[in-house]
Design a protein around this nucleic acid. Structure first.
Lengths: 318, 318
DNA sequence: CTCCTTATACTCAGTTTGAGCATTAATGAT
DNA sequence: ATCATTAATGCTCAAACTGAGTATAAGGAG
């Protein structure tokens, strides 16, 4: 019953920022595979009092980032998820974390750098309308896969699952279903990482940019969680500069949600919600009428139970 | 960098059922302390391909329960959370799971038995109006604690936190904040378990029924998650018998949410939502007009993105 | 048959949304 | 200076959704 095998616990961090209206992600280069990987550190039971402290510890050492909100995402322990450097009975269990920051300068000690989140999950960015890759690649290849499967009782359910998660029928894209979509593509063998699980034809480049191990699954988990959570927690503000215009805020939310929003309604929601307060200053570099600058209104945390940025009616296309 | 210390991973399960309009929880007796504990099993890296399979494995062996929905809750790794049988550098990390079932008969192999969820968190049950313990114990003791603290800049925030999570001011009880309330009571030393962390006066029985280790925190996590999730996932149905009346369904939702709902609106929400379909049969034992029996409409999973039971306007008192 | 009880149906006002039109205040070209 | 251009900001309105009732139906007990 006491199975204290050789288990190593790693703390993976999905460190997110939003810079220039783009959601950014801190990655490191995995030397042996030359793929991008999430930064991680070991959990050191002797030194770290809690898991989160362990995480904050190595992030502080390896980067000089000031982390804001940190939240545990999920613990990944599948066998085979880490195929490299795994010897004998050793098993790596990774605890994934989502961490927000607003400073886009990693420390000098690492080979970490910022990349665009949507490089890895290009089908998730609908800000310029439906991503081309969906029409050109995903739909047909998912369709091929689906029709190549033997017909079983689960076929109808799978069809609907495809339609729901990818919004094929109802025309309603649910931006929160990031993980569900990733998993579907993985099952269909359209994700390069799936080759290790034998689900993919060898040599197929797959969709989106490959990452080390199952790290793309972890960022899918993170994006899905973040997209859900900004609606009821004021997380966006951790990604914003001290003062910002409402439109800049909207752009940040759009960057995360991957959708375009109705400007006037967004403004109404934010203003009425008491999430921000005017600073008195204005931003003159708008190209039009100057925009008032706001800052996050801390007090809202004390007033409301779930002060988040509800997404007002999404707009169609660019 | 390779810190493969002695780490043991345990898989804890919060196994939930709803029986006779009460939310039930499967617990075992922890022999040395004679406290209730969550059942758990070891994660065996050699045998278990995934964490969830490990969990399902030992649950199947130890009980003969048929688990429905299983979801990972959180990974707990604080030092000191397991004060018993912890020798030297060994560290226990627990991955908590929520599992739903509808059969209330644990197997013969264990000392597991079902208890009422609210024994451990009595302040969470508002079905008969505001729980007495809130007025009689919690408010005054929280107040004493708060006023006994040194005044700092964080004082106002703490005050608001108390008011928000316990709905003291706004009269709005948010049933999802289970963990937040537990943590607040813990910090205030009103939870018996807190004695181990030195936050509590020795001999103080604390509020609610004590559990082993930090298991009460885990069930608080589970209840909070479940209360949130039933609103957008059809989880309640896993806790229901095959066929049920709308009122029985309402009672189950009320048992979980700990609130009373407006009957007519609940019915409207469920019916309009296409979550159920008539079976044609009726339940004659209602004490009044017979009630139509319904069953879960599986197809809704294929039609809607987040088919859950939104809670319609909560009713006041009994 | 009448009363009691619960199920089920329908109503209605207040609020929240989705969407678009209108107005304001800068900038740069003429 | 004047005007066209560009955003920011303000306002309106109908449709959808909610909270909270009132009304009716269909059993059982007496």
């Amino acid at each position: 019953m006491t199975s204290s095998h050789q288990i190593e616990i790693r703390l993976n961090a999905v460190i997110v920022a939003v810079t220039k209206e783009e959601p950014r992600l801190l990655v490191v280069d995995d030397a042996p595979t030359s793929k991008h990987a999430l930064p991680f550190g070991p959990f050191n039971p002797a030194a770290d009092r809690t898991l989160e402290q362990g995480l904050r510890g190595w992030v502080k050492n390896q980067t000089n980032l000031q982390l804001g909100h940190v939240e545990q995402l999920y613990t990944f322990g599948d066998r085979g998820r880490d195929t490299y450097g795994q010897s004998g009975s050793e098993r790596v269990v990774s605890v994934g974390y989502l961490a927000l920051t607003n400073e886009a300068k990693p420390g000098a000690t690492t080979n970490a750098h910022w990349t665009n989140w949507y490089d890895y999950l290009p089908w998730e960015d609908w800000r310029e309308g439906e991503p081309e890759i969906l029409q050109r690649e995903i739909r047909p290849r998912l369709s091929d896969w689906f029709h190549g499967l033997p017909k079983t009782t689960a076929t109808a359910a799978l069809r609907q699952r495809i339609h729901l998660t990818f919004g094929l029928k109802s025309r309603t894209w649910n931006e929160e279903l990031v993980l569900e979509r990733y998993e579907l593509l993985y099952e269909a063998g359209l994700i390069a990482e799936a080759v290790r699980a034998g689900r993919k034809k060898f040599e197929d480049p797959g969709l989106g940019k490959e990452m080390h191990s199952d790290h793309r699954r972890i960022i899918a988990t993170a994006l899905g969680r973040l997209r859900g959570k900004i609606k009821y927690r004021p997380l966006v503000f951790e990604l914003m500069p001290e003062r910002f215009t409402l439109f800049q805020l909207q752009r940040a939310v759009e960057a995360l949600s991957g959708t375009r929003l109705h400007k006037q309604n967004f403004r109404r929601l934010i203003a009425d919600g008491g999430l921000v307060e005017e600073t008195g200053s204005v931003d003159l570099h708008t190209g039009g009428r100057p925009a008032k600058q706001f800052c996050f209104r801390e007090e809202v945390l004390l007033e409301r139970l779930s002060p988040g940025v509800k997404l007002p009616g999404k707009r169609r296309a660019g």
